[in-house]
């Protein structure tokens, strides 16, 4: 009898000790997460980081990578029911030539440097005057609501980020496209972010959240 009890305990002990060995990548993270090549849990596409995990965005929303928020895509706004709806005129393609911005509110054509077409947008004073997916470019002579393309896109080198506003691939930790063309103090960065001097880490200046910026 004693031998049977001891054998049972030993079996349970060995099974319990080895149970943790069977931990494949699919088992390592929580809901709406995936195990990345960096050996950490990251949010799946269309989910954002919240305290303690990831929350999926509603259908139709997109992820604001810089601020880890679910926002309506460029050109849309959230209606009273929380659903993203097209905003007539906002985001319409334009080129200042034959494609014009005819909406009385979204009458500015924002064209990136070296680009031939842009999008219709509005003037602004601060971020509150822009939809969630837009940032008020207060550093411009005539501020307007603008987007930043490519932020948070996965990359292996900066070649993968070419053509985006986020043209620098940060390969030290996140392996994502980041905005490296900002000026400390002017902060040409998406809303709620600042231009951070990371030259001591060999990264130059990058747009970053204030709490992640070394003092």
């Amino acid at each position: 009898m004693t031998e049977k009890i001891l054998a049972g305990l030993l079996g349970a002990f060995v099974a319990g000790a080895q149970g943790g060995c069977a931990l494949d990548d699919a088992d390592k993270c929580g809901p709406h997460m995936e195990f990345s090549d960096s050996q950490v849990c990251t949010c799946v596409e269309n989910a954002v980081e919240v305290t303690g995990g990831c929350e999926p965005c509603a259908p139709g929303d997109v992820v604001d990578e810089m601020n880890q928020a679910c926002v309506c895509p460029a050109g849309q706004t959230r209606d009273g029911g929380g659903t993203c709806r097209e905003v007539a005129g906002l985001g319409d393609p334009c080129n200042g030539d034959d494609l014009t911005c005819d909406d009385p509110l979204f009458n500015r054509c924002a064209v990136a440097v070296d680009a031939t077409t842009g999008y219709c947008t509005s003037s602004c004073v601060d971020d509150s005057g822009c939809e969630a997916a837009y940032t008020c470019a207060v550093w411009e002579d005539e501020p307007y609501c603008r987007t930043f393309t490519g932020v948070g896109q996965a990359c292996e080198s900066s070649d993968d980020c070419a053509g985006n506003d986020a043209g620098f691939c940060e390969t030290l930790q996140s392996h994502t496209c980041q905005i490296a063309t900002c000026t400390v103090g002017i902060d040409e960065c998406p809303r709620d972010n600042i231009c951070c001097d990371l030259s001591s880490y060999g990264l130059g200046t990058l747009c970053s959240s204030p709490e992640d910026c070394p003092t």
Partner: peptide, 10 residues
Amino acid sequence: FGEGFAPDSF
């Protein structure tokens, strides 16, 4: 490590 969440681990 500057990004993401800690995974379950053994």
